[in-house]
């Protein structure tokens, strides 16, 4: 098992987390809903994007007013960055604005799928790791790329299940399983989760955590979905650790024949 066993806590780069469900903060109706959904999810890591402060409309509230930094680990991402230069710039700004060296690194390669540009991702990761960042890379389902990211110093990898916001669930479970066997760092399935069973499946395959945003924020009842996801991730993890029965083509009776009339 890649993550430490004590109380089955998730450990990444020396940091311990209770929850294996990580959530994004985008696409909600308002900050109140964001806060309620995050609380219902039980998540203790939340991702945020890095953007210009709105200086013309000063009445706009601040997301950070709704997220207690003592309760949550804020994980800034480089969402919207399509080049190495931009991703590195945004990561540096995130560190300057925030409180830690953690960054979820996104270098996007394509507008329609939002798949990562893995070459750019590796390049940006190298630069940031050298500058002391703790880089959690949003990557694809290629085990070769996942291994490269770990080899250059990423303490975890975040392979996508499916395109961001697509709700398709795990599109390539075989590759995900290979990644889980290939790397010896935590694997956080990120992007594309649609509903609770997708999250449970990810955990049953052996993923260490799941990150989602649209699956919750875009649900008809986000707060209810957040709660569903909390249970799904927990159930999936318990099932994984419990060791499932094998799949068989034919039946194996559960009751003895002895004593039949």
């Amino acid at each position: 098992m890649r993550s430490e066993d004590r109380d089955d806590r998730l450990v990444i780069a020396g940091r311990e987390f209770k929850s294996r469900l990580w959530v994004g903060t985008g696409k909600y109706k308002d900050f109140i809903e964001t806060q309620k959904a995050i609380e219902a999810s039980g998540a203790d890591v939340v991702t945020v994007a890095v953007r210009r402060v709105n200086i013309t409309d000063r009445s706009k509230e601040n997301l950070l007013d709704y997220l207690d930094p003592k309760k949550y680990t804020i994980l800034p991402n480089t969402a919207g960055c399509y080049t190495v230069e931009d991703a590195v710039r945004y990561a540096r700004l995130a560190r300057a604005a925030g409180v830690s060296d953690l960054v979820k690194l996104e270098v996007i390669g394509d507008e329609r799928t939002l798949f990562p540009d893995t070459a750019g991702l590796i390049e940006a990761a190298k630069i940031l790791i050298q500058e002391g960042f703790i880089v959690l890379p949003y990557t694809n389902d290629d085990p070769v790329v996942a291994k490269k990211l770990v080899d250059i110093g990423c303490p975890a990898v975040m392979p996508l299940a499916a395109p961001i916001g697509s709700g398709l669930g795990i599109r390539n479970p075989y590759n995900l399983k290979i990644i889980l066997e290939t790397v010896n760092v935590p694997v956080i399935v990120d992007a594309g989760v649609g509903t609770a069973s997708d999250a449970a499946l990810a955990m049953e395959y052996g993923a260490d955590a799941v990150l989602m945003n649209t699956a919750i924020a875009g649900a008809k009842d986000p707060i209810a979905m957040a709660e569903a996801m909390k249970y799904a991730v927990h159930a999936g993890r318990l099932a994984y650790r419990a060791g499932r029965i094998p799949r068989k083509l034919y039946a194996t009776a559960s009751s003895p024949i002895e004593g039949m009339l």
Binding site: T25, R52, A79, T214, A217
Partner: peptide, 11 residues
């Protein structure tokens, strides 16, 4: 620059 709500790149 500051933090705003966001999960992944806007779809």
């Amino acid at each position: 620059i500051s933090f705003i709500g966001g999960g992944n790149s806007q779809s």
